[in-house]
């Protein structure tokens, strides 16, 4: 057990030698780059948070599967990826028990209740984050400033409340307040490029997602570079919107998904009550994924349009 294979294009197929396990541990490896940036900026505390969250995710999966009398598949690494992803989406100063609650919710209500890996309609890590966001709004928006260790606002909050932008270099390298893994755009792009090179993600979702946000920012009179580099956009575009299970499988579908997520992000950021809308927009597009798949079925090879 535990050897699931995902086939996402039309036949004929050649087996590439990939397995869920290999993909997941490669993704986890790529995630280490933004994680390293987070640990560098926020210190040991960030490392502890990542380890605890990941352990909680793996344990929840094992306990849930044991309780349901199903085979235990924690070794496929998907819970590890969910745990790391969730940790990267949390404020570094979050109380550890809250991170554990988030990981348990992510795995149990975000993934296992639907039937486990491959069955979940929504990205589990994002379910965990949004649950924590609604449950502990104060703790989830208490950001630590990496420079002096005091609590402060994220660049996006500063933008929303006071209309002040933050230095591009700082945003790019990650020396800013924010979630653990979203600080360094540079490291995220590096990790994303590795996944692109391995062929685990497609350029279309992040490309069209980021492009839509940039274009809409220009149209609506905002600073596109600031909008691209701040908040969880980079992390969301490369690591969460591209989730194989919850994003469309056809090329056109991926384009629609990226554009839709971009539009939602911009609407929430510019007009919504929250300063950041990446997680909500990806979850919203997750909900559209089955419909997108349904209407973007590629033409069968050799099929001719009937006149």
């Amino acid at each position: 057990m535990g050897e699931y294979k995902f086939i996402t294009t039309s036949s004929p197929h050649i087996h590439s030698g990939e397995s869920v396990q290999r993909i997941m541990f490669n993704v986890a490896g790529a995630l280490m780059l933004p994680a390293a940036a987070g640990i560098y900026f926020f210190g040991l505390r960030a490392l502890v948070l990542i380890i605890i969250t990941t352990l909680a995710a793996v344990l929840t999966e094992a306990i849930f599967q044991k309780l349901r009398g199903k085979p235990i598949t924690v070794w496929d690494g998907s819970a590890v990826v969910t745990g790391i992803l969730l940790a990267l989406n949390l404020p570094p100063g979050l109380p550890l028990w809250m991170a554990v609650v988030g990981a348990a919710i992510a795995i149990s209500l975000g993934k296992q209740v639907y039937g486990g890996i491959g069955m979940n309609p929504f990205n589990p890590a994002l379910i965990g984050r949004v649950f924590l966001m609604i449950t502990f709004p104060v703790q989830m928006t208490t950001w630590i400033n990496p420079v002096d260790g005091t609590t402060g606002a994220t660049p996006l909050q500063i933008m929303k409340m006071q209309g002040v932008s933050t230095d591009y270099i700082k945003l790019f390298l990650g020396n800013i307040g924010g979630s653990l893994g979203e600080t360094s755009a540079f490291m995220i792009i590096l990790g994303g490029l590795y996944l692109l090179y391995k062929g685990y993600i497609e350029w279309r979702i992040p490309g069209f997602y980021l492009g839509t946000v940039a274009i809409l920012s220009v149209v609506l009179g905002r600073d596109p570079i600031f909008e691209l580099l701040s908040g969880g956009l980079m992390l969301g575009a490369f690591f969460m919107a591209t989730d194989m299970v919850t994003s469309p499988i056809s090329r056109l579908g991926k384009i629609i998904f990226g554009i839709g997520a971009g539009i939602f992000t911009v609407i929430i950021r510019f007009y919504g009550g929250y300063p950041e809308g990446v997680s909500f927009s990806i979850l919203l597009m997750n909900a559209f994924t089955p419909v997108i798949n349904r209407y973007t079925v590629p033409r069968i090879y050799g099929e001719v349009k009937v006149r």
Binding site: M98, F131, I134, T135, F136, P137, Q139
Partner: peptide, 8 residues
């Protein structure tokens, strides 16, 4: 710490 989601 109150779990706000429970009241929603």
């Amino acid at each position: 710490t109150h779990w706000v989601i429970m009241l929603l």
